[in-house]
């Protein structure tokens, strides 16, 4: 996508505290700024840093600054690092035109592990995500990250998936430039490989 399809375009990047959504949103926001867009990135973290649900609200505009939080039902794109978090976010912010891009690897909440709550079957979950979105892209980013040497690459792979999904005026080169601004050496090389892996997962 070369230009904005909406004013503003509302993107939510969420997951579980510690998965790296804050850095993702910062990188996406910075890349958009470098392309001449106004970008606002509202991070909803706080104590949810410790394993709770987290989300960054990215609002992309050609005109002005919008409020830090996207209103209910107003997300155009939801990127989730964890699949039930994708449905949780869709439930609050989704609408029939929302595009969802999610990692398929569950992070089980304490209540699920302890048997107090159940985690849905993946089939049932992905069916619901597909039903209530215009388009759902489900990728196994964590497994790919573990193959690359650690779960730490999951968020950068998901940035690749977001670029590959072609729903934002965002491209590989502007993201690579943002990464090169912050990382060096093998870290940078691996991050760029992770972006490419994400693009490849969506294409494949």
């Amino acid at each position: 996508m070369k230009t904005l399809t909406k004013e503003p375009l509302n993107v939510i990047i969420g997951g579980v505290g510690g998965q790296g959504n804050v850095l993702m949103a910062f990188l996406v926001g910075s890349a958009l700024l470098s392309k001449g867009y106004l970008a606002g990135v509202g991070d909803t973290y706080g104590t949810s840093q410790r394993g709770g649900p987290v989300a960054s609200h990215v609002r992309i505009s050609k005109e002005k600054q919008y409020s830090p939080l996207i209103a209910s039902g107003h997300a155009d794109v939801i990127v989730a690092l964890e699949p039930v978090e994708a449905l949780r976010l869709l439930n609050q912010f989704g609408n029939p035109d929302t595009v969802v891009i999610t990692n398929s690897r569950p992070v089980y909440p304490p209540d699920v592990s302890s048997g107090k709550a159940t985690y849905p079957e993946m089939d049932e979950l992905s069916q619901a995500i597909r039903k209530f979105s215009a388009k759902a892209i489900i990728v196994n980013a964590t497994d790919e990250a573990l193959k690359m040497g650690g779960a730490i690459f999951t968020n950068v792979i998901m940035i690749g998936a977001l670029i590959g999904a072609d729903v934002l005026p965002l491209d590989r080169e502007s993201m690579a430039a943002q990464l090169a601004d912050r990382f060096h050496g093998t870290v940078l090389e691996n991050d760029i490989k992770a972006v490419d892996k994400g693009i490849e997962l969506v294409a494949g």
Binding site: S48, G52, D111, V112, A117, T118, Y119, P120, E124, L125
Partner: peptide
């Protein structure tokens, strides 16, 4: 449908 989403406490 979202009732299948389990709570996620800190």
């Amino acid at each position: 449908a979202a009732k299948m989403v389990p709570p996620r406490s800190i």
